[in-house]
Design a protein around this nucleic acid. Structure first.
Lengths: 137, 137
DNA sequence: GCTTGACCTTCCAACGGTGGGAAGGTGTAT
DNA sequence: ATACACCTTCCCACCGTTGGAAGGTCAAGC
């Protein structure tokens, strides 16, 4: 199966497949006489694994680890769980940070009239005084 | 004031200040005789603006727009609000996507025993069948 | 045959935002 | 004088992905 077909079946771009191979995430694909990469069902399976992991936000390094565990029939599920949980924690942290951003931003947006007048709490919030001390009385 | 001092006061790295200048986000800084960049209070003010906007997740392009509006005393607050709201929407979308990721991941993690046994719903979830059709009965 | 178009190959560069570091000049304190 | 902290410009790296150039190959149609 050509790289394009494998890509379509796995839900990953051909470009990315070559990239994954280049960075050593995947073993070099088999080649036909014409140098075309040749993929079998099990390769597609692996690519699909990568695609799903990416879609869950795992980093390439994490995926590298997960792939190794996946290939090892005797891995302890403990190790897989550890990787996944670490990433989940990471995700939750980032979500929290973004929610804080969004909260602050929403507050600013909510206080802005959004009309033709120049007064704008958003810009004031961004450019305002750094410390609450030197506010003139 | 030297770039390091300005950086410290504004909460932005000196490296970044030079970068912002290089990409045209900031007007070229004044130079002393020794070629050192020289910053005044109002420059620091501007840098602080950028730093805050970055911390709220605005892109460089959005900040470029916001800076222009900020400098224009006659801008309609409507325009500022539009930019901020668009970014807020963007943030919320991304938060939603990450929450979806986290939700799926948590489900997988919760179903994994996480012990010495190799059975692992996490890997099964990542590598499992793509379509519900060809499941052998 | 010969052309067209879709596919494949490798290689190189870009994005956004930040940081690291080299190689050299300058300021200041002792 | 010497040490050290700071400044300058420059180029490179990260991450994951995409785009394109320049060329080879295959399958179709006429």
């Amino acid at each position: 199966m050509n790289i394009g077909t494998a890509a379509a079946e796995a839900g990953v771009s051909a470009k990315m497949i070559r990239h994954y191979e280049a960075i050593g995430l995947l073993r070099p694909a088999a080649r036909r006489d014409n140098q075309y990469r040749d993929y079998a069902e099990r390769d597609v399976h692996e690519l699909r694994f990568i695609g799903r992991a990416r879609r869950l936000g795992f980093s390439m390094d994490e995926i590298r680890t997960l792939l190794a565990l996946w290939r090892d029939d005797a891995r302890p599920s403990r190790e897989v769980r550890r990787v996944a949980q670490a990433h989940l924690h990471d995700l939750e942290t980032r979500i929290g940070e973004m929610q804080a951003m969004a909260g602050t931003l929403r507050e600013l947006v909510d206080h802005c009239h959004g009309d033709a007048r120049p007064e704008c709490p958003i810009l004031e919030g961004l450019g305002g005084a750094p410390k609450s001390a030197t506010t003139p009385g």
